[in-house]
Amino acid sequence: MGIVKLLSAAAIAAATMTGTAFAEYPEQTITIIVPWSAGGGTDAAARTIGTILERDLGQKVSVINRTGGSGVVGHSAIAAAKPDGYTLGLITSEINMMHWMGLTELTHEAYAPLAMMNEDPAGVHVAATSPWNDLGAMVEDIRANPGKFKGTGTGIGGSWHLALAGLLNELDISADALPWIPSKGAATGLLDIVAGGAHVAPVSLPEAAALAEAGKLKTLAIMSNQRAENFPDVPTVEQAIGVPWSQGVWRGMVVPKGVDEAIVEKLSAAMEKIYKDPEYADFMQKRGFGLRYMGSAEFGEFLGEEDASMGVVLKAIGLAKQ
């Protein structure tokens, strides 16, 4: 009898203690895992989020880079972290591609989403000397001469590749019509466009801004619902050819699944506050990153929808593993 009483008392005590622990969250250092290397765009965004979060929550926030395997290593590390709310992660579009390509079993379902913090729509860039002056001309030329023109700007199956392949797929143009030349990154791909090695690069607008300004590139369209604030002259895909199509790369904050609801809510609210913070907006604006926010629930829905549409595109271009 006595023992049962003691145990239940201990259980109640433990429950109240953990209860107060939640109320006092956060009480130790918070870690943000970034699946990409230090110095890159995702890293810079994570460090800015970390700095503001540290100020808002009054608790030290450290950013860790877990790189390698085209993001697989870092994304897995976020999912495998202890779900105590002290390990956060900044995930990127790749999470919805790598499992289709058979690189990992991991999907977005392993996370509890907090908020989408940014999205950069893809642009359609061609060399300044290119005969194409609008998106319609380019698309019809590709349709008429399958295999003649080549695209570049990222690795095979990278976000930018899928953005353009998805658009062509939407227009019923076969994936083989525009063979893809893999490149190490957007900058390398753009240089190849200028040097005449390939014909179109669907990368983000800020990445191409300097070369466009130098008169080496022209931008035919932006894959978004509305024109970009910094590039008001570039039409959207719908304005150019009448087909609605938006695609880009995004970054969002998550915690591993299993974190206490109250903590998820608290962190989610913290993310919204960061997004509205002028310091964050100022940083993103200067760095040329697109701003887009989605709350926890909306971001969760978005992840599911995007995962499905990525599956369609990857299957269409034959990169999905069966």
């Binding site: 790189t67 390698g68 395997g69 697989v72 290593v73 690189l103 690795g155 199956g157």
Partner: peptide, 20 residues
């Protein structure tokens, strides 16, 4: 690893770390 142009994992013997 898979840092080759086609992005196919090679010689990594199933290791996630060696993918990079």
């Amino acid at each position: 690893g898979m840092e080759n142009p086609i992005g196919t994992p090679r010689f990594n013997f199933g290791s996630i770390e060696l993918l990079g």
